[in-house]
Design a protein around this nucleic acid. Structure first.
Length: 300
DNA sequence: TCGCAGGTGGTCG
DNA sequence: CGACCACCTGCG
């Protein structure tokens, strides 16, 4: 069972390997196998011209595509138009886009994104992925069997809230284990689970709710807003963004307030997309390829 | 070996 | 309110 569609503005490597998601693995043929919303699938892309081609989702139906994957891959958004607007607004971003075009901001499950980015703090991607898979394998239910492998869902807030730090040891979360349990309790109690699922919440309202959770600070809150709630104006500032803003725009690495204000002014409603472009550019190219205008870019 | 990795919570001035 | 600093753990 599979479904195919012609889409544009897509690059699977840049989308699945840019650090916004942790449950996708690259196959030898370049496709990605993973799980989202309880559905294990394989996603391949047959490109016929740059960033355009046929996406094929194996182990998914036409109905699944409409219900899940269209939304998950944010296919309703015109990234080509956004790229043109961002390029027009800022010459440096115009160059950055050349190296990061094809990233799509996924709309992931809110709870999965919340626990993933609590785990991500002060860690690295291989370790984050291991912890998340261990959480699923040890404490989540079976989602299905696919390609000879059993896929598990993440544990629900209720299940996680019932566990102790000791019981969570197999997930190797370190000091983040207690953050996760505390947040799971808060989310599973009261009506918070509904709050977390409320994508219509205003940005400030959603941010205030998230930052009140244990283990969630400004960076993690903005990641959740961006990678699961479709708030593409949110601009998470992590160590890589500080580096790239320093390198390309001349900011002091500690000047996060300045970076935030600059992003709002310059990238506006597309701050989060610009952030992913900058992150990918810095993380995977190390800023080495960039030559065209970094020498004379004004800070103000 | 030891510092560092996609930060946050707690404390102190 | 801003500037520290400890914090689990795995890896080069």
């Amino acid at each position: 069972m599979k479904v195919s569609k012609y889409i544009k503005d897509f690059n699977p490597d840049r989308t699945f390997d840019c650090g916004q998601c942790f449950r996708w693995d690259k196959e030898n043929d370049g496709s990605y196998t993973g799980i989202a919303f309880g559905k294990p699938v394989n996603i391949s892309f047959n490109e016929d011209e740059p960033f355009k081609g046929i996406i094929t989702i194996e182990n998914a139906s036409e109905e699944n595509f409409e219900d899940i994957w269209h939304n998950y891959l944010d296919l309703g958004r015109d990234y080509g138009e956004i790229n043109r607007e961002l390029s027009q607004k800022d010459a440096i971003m115009s160059d950055v886009i050349k190296y990061s075009e094809g990233i799509r901001i996924l709309k992931q499950d809110e709870w999965e994104t919340l626990i993933s980015f609590i785990i991500s703090q002060n860690s690295n991607i291989p370790r984050i992925k291991k912890s998340i898979e261990a959480l699923a394998a040890n404490f989540g239910g079976i989602a299905g069997e696919y390609r000879g492998r059993v896929f598990h869902n993440l544990p629900t807030p209720e299940v996680l809230a019932s566990l102790t730090v000791e019981e969570l040891e197999p997930a190797r979360l370190g000091y983040r284990a207690k953050y996760l349990i505390e947040t799971a309790k808060a989310v599973s109690e009261d009506k918070n689970e509904k709050l977390l699922k409320n994508r219509d919440m205003m940005l400030e309202e959603a941010y205030d709710y998230l930052i009140g959770l244990c283990g969630v600070g400004p960076k993690v809150a903005n990641c959740i807003l961006l990678f699961s709630m479709g708030k593409i104006e949110s601009f998470p500032i992590d160590v890589w963004i500080r580096r790239v803003m320093s390198k390309l725009y001349g900011f002091e690495e500690k000047d996060m307030k300045g970076m935030k204000a600059f992003a709002e002014e310059t990238f506006g409603q597309y701050g989060g997309i610009a952030q992913q472009y900058l992150f990918y550019y810095m993380r995977w190219h190390g800023g080495k390829i960039f030559v065209s205008c970094k020498m004379n870019c004004p800070k103000e």
